[in-house]
Design a protein around this nucleic acid. Structure first.
Lengths: 349, 349
DNA sequence: TGCGTGTTCGAAAACGTTTTCATGCTACGG
DNA sequence: CCGTAGCATGAAAACGTTTTCGAACACGCA
């Protein structure tokens, strides 16, 4: 059926060893035979069988990518970064997604057994050490956006805390003192880090942290929308709202507008991630830019280095910087919040 | 290093054939030996090597997924559908993305040689027949969202034309006669289909098609934004704008708001795809719901059926229905468009 | 007892490569 | 002329499975 190395050898009148040697350029072969082999391979359209090869070499030329879920623009960007970097190094990508439960994660990791040379693992809601226990065998791993307690593994993260701290500082500098936060999923590592950045900024400014200003969210647009509805019923209203990601900020924005509150005149609003849409809302959204593509690319780089190194390199922990992006949704605190809510169309900025 | 079938055989005091037979349940084995094998495999933590297995069986248990690019929420949803369906049938996913040029597509397809049992191929900007010519060998293929001239291959598409026709009809029924369309990428199959739906609806209503009402776009938010800026300079303004996808509608919405035009009082606006965000804009966006997850799931189903059938089934062409979703961004034509542009805050619906 | 039949199981081939090992050849110095 | 080193090359082993083939054995029947 398929053309094998034997067919090439027969046609070139050489042994299969010679064919292998020519094609892999592994040692010297006479010019005459090299020509014959190349010609035969070309004519027959020979493609080596990667399965047979990897049975022997123990290399598959594939990387596993395991993520717990897939949502919106974030994941698309991440995959872009990963794929570009992998393609550059001639690796295929075997990806597995959607495992909410631990046993699903286990099944996903087990199914990669002997199929990949290394694994990119993103488990924001589970410590890296716990996830790695489900790996079938001793395979190189690099974590993305994951909490790691020790330093036994390589990990690439964003500076979630730093980014959120910068956002909070920005609001404080604008005079805001009542800053509500729509949080991310309770179990999520990055959400906790962002919250930590908020507390750091408050502390630095000598402001007290009050858990009453936190509204639980789950990174969905709907959560942002509902959070604002909750928040509008509070006795004292915030002058600024900090959403733990852009998606929730979008939801918040639409709830605010429906309620007749103007952004940023009545309430300042900011998000996190700086997804492409953030610049196209009205007003455009102040956010913190996380280099999503870079995250994927760096992780691949790290993993491939690990795979190709003869001696396993020391595990590295990489934290990518997050940049504050100030747009039109944040402004100095106005002080006329309550009246504005009553007469929504009375003023125009 | 790794535990093999030999280790299990030795420990269970049987031959490797027997181990294989027990583990694959391929023919009768005495109860005693079966027990011993199972026990030994369990104790050693034996996992069969899929590479060795597939060298013999010619099956890899993997599906290739090849898409030209990855953008936003659409792709995330698609992947969700594909992954869920594949996992259900115990297939891994090997995905390859980002090939703008034909030779990149070729390289991507070639790299799947002998690595996958079948390929899911999405090439909206290239006819299926042209893409399939780059496949390394005779491997089952199912197309997604791709133009297919003949009927030699299986394909799963949306009813792009029908959906867009429904949107256009909806606007016509609301009294709109000047309906501008922000088109998709010129080469894109789905964009062309949507445009065809627009023309069909016009024709059915006895209205003339005028290419002057078309503004070129490329499915990006930016394109929608810029399209509206173009359009506002026209001597005669449309009463409704139909964007070829939601992303462009979002961009258009923000440009309209910046220009002081109200949606839907001054201009009606609709999109296509009904991404999750569509219900969270203000006003919420009238759109056409495409069953993205289903697209992926059906394609996988189709492909796996093909793979597992002993005789290749007749290629099927599947067109998934698209539902009109009417929200707040479309309204009966007002007739006060021009004055409204001058006094944007004059009315409140 | 001899023979056919059916059942369980092990030996060995096969899959398509890479790599080791041995062999034959050439060239060269003594 | 001979031994040896170096080199090109082919034969064969190896990778870890599945599957075919045949052997061994038990059993029923003549």
């Amino acid at each position: 059926m398929s053309v094998t190395i034997r067919d090439v050898a027969r046609r070139a009148q050489v042994s299969i060893s010679t064919v292998s040697r020519v094609l892999n350029d592994t040692c010297r072969v006479s010019e005459e035979k090299r020509r014959r082999v190349l010609e035969a391979a070309e004519q027959l359209g020979y493609r080596p069988n990667p399965v047979a090869r990897s049975l022997l070499t123990k290399e598959t030329g594939a990387l596993g990518v395991v993520v717990p879920f897939v949502f919106g623009e974030f994941f698309a960007e991440l995959l872009n970064g990963i794929d570009a970097a992998a393609q550059e190094r001639a690796f295929c990508l075997t990806i597995s997604t959607s495992h909410r439960h631990e046993h699903e994660l286990r099944a996903a990791l087990q199914s990669l057994h002997k199929r990949v040379d290394g694994v990119l693992l993103m488990t924001p809601e589970m410590p890296g050490e716990q996830a790695v226990a489900h790996l079938p065998e001793d395979v190189p791993v690099v974590f993305l956006n994951t909490r790691l307690s020790g330093d036994g593994y390589a990990v690439v993260n964003f500076d979630n805390a730093g980014g959120f701290r910068a956002l909070t500082r920005h609001l404080i500098a604008l005079g805001h003192r009542r800053i509500a936060v729509i949080t991310g999923p309770e179990a999520a590592f990055d959400a906790a880090e962002r919250l930590r950045g908020y507390r750091m900024a408050l502390e630095e400014a000598g402001m007290a942290f009050d858990p009453a200003w936190l509204i639980p969210g789950d990174y969905s647009q709907r959560a942002g929308y509902e959070a604002v509805q909750t928040l509008l019923a509070w006795p004292e209203r915030p002058t600024a709202i900090l959403a733990s990601n852009d998606q929730m900020a979008f939801g918040a924005l639409s709830a605010l507008r429906e309620a007749g509150l103007r952004v940023p005149e009545d309430v300042s609003l900011a998000g996190f991630d700086d997804v492409p849409s953030a610049r196209y809302t009205v007003p455009s959204l102040t956010s913190a830019r996380v280099p999503i593509r870079d995250l994927g690319a760096r992780a691949v780089q790290c993993l491939v280095d690990h795979i190709q190194a003869e001696t396993p390199p020391a595990p590295r922990s990489l934290v990518l910087p997050v940049d504050l992006v100030v747009r039109d949704s944040t402004a100095p605190v106005g002080g006329r919040l309550h009246t504005a809510a009553i007469e929504p169309t009375a003023r125009k900025a």
